[in-house]
Amino acid sequence: MSGFHEVRFPLRLALGVSGGPVRRTDIVNLSNGRENRNARWRNARRAYDAGSGIKSLADLYEVLAFFEARMGQLYGFRFRDPLDWKSCPPHAALSATDQVIGTGDGVQRSFQLVKIYGDAGGASRRTIAKPIGPSVVVSVNGQAVAGDRFTCDATTGLVTFAAHAVPPAGAVIRAGFEFDVPVRFDTDRIDINLTAFNAGRIPAIPIQEILP
């Protein structure tokens, strides 16, 4: 991912940020009163407002300094979604069997981390490109894999098994992990008015997910 800094937006401030997934759907109203719906985006893109996490002048300066270091929209960075940041629900314990990431064929060694959101009506598959490396745990057919038998690239989310530990044909590979969202600022300008800030008006600082 070009133009990306492997640094995280201050976690303390991210906990107060508002936002979530955004989808783009075209809706055509037909003459008979029905409608056709088509997804313009295959995957959702997360959008956030960093301004909502700012509670003090010190917070405002910290975000300003981070914005300057990223040169506005130029460089992407890591962001922890306050609600969706691991392979399981936020109230659950992470497990090596959380998400299916592939099926072995006896030859393939590398598998991409993914997270599935679904129910009986349908499902959406999300590529996880910015895992927290030390958090990644893996299982093959339900059996935990020792940490020396695989590696995980924290900059791409690619899990690679050692040459002597290739999953056999038909084996189900699962993983558990924590992760960040790759994002960038969605503006090259931050308007700061200290008089308005002291009166409780927080500047809008939009952040946009970058799809891998």
Rank of each mutant, 00 (worst) to 15 (best):
D105H: 08
H91A: 15
T160E: 04
A154Q: 15
R184M: 01
V100W: 07
L158V: 14
L94Y: 02
V100R: 11
V107T: 15
T155H: 11
A162I: 07
R189S: 15
R201Q: 13
R201D: 06
D119G: 12
G122Q: 04
G121P: 09
I101W: 05
V172G: 09
D148E: 11
Q112E: 01
A120T: 08
V107L: 09
A146F: 04
P182G: 02
R149S: 14
A169H: 13
V159I: 15
V159L: 06
I205D: 05
S124D: 13
G106S: 06
F161E: 09
I173K: 06
G102A: 05
A196W: 10
V137N: 07
G170A: 01
A163F: 10
D188Y: 11
G176N: 06
V136M: 09
S139Q: 00
A165F: 06
Q108H: 07
F150W: 10
V183H: 06
H91Q: 15
A93L: 13
V145D: 04
A171H: 09
A169R: 15
P182I: 00
A204S: 15
I116R: 13
T195P: 01
P168I: 07
G147V: 02
S124H: 14
V137P: 03
F111L: 03
A204E: 12
F111D: 02
L94M: 12
V137Y: 05
N198P: 04
S135E: 06
I132G: 05
A129E: 10
P131C: 05
A93Y: 10
G157T: 04
I205H: 08
T156A: 11
P167S: 12
P206I: 05
A144N: 14
G106P: 01
A165G: 13
L113Q: 00
D180S: 15
K130A: 10
T160Q: 07
I101P: 02
V172S: 01
V136C: 04
R126Y: 13
L194M: 15
V140Y: 01
I192F: 08
V107W: 08
G106D: 14
S124G: 11
D153H: 05
I173Q: 09
G200E: 12
P134F: 01
I116E: 14
F150T: 02
T160Y: 11
V100K: 13
A96F: 10
A169E: 15
A96M: 09
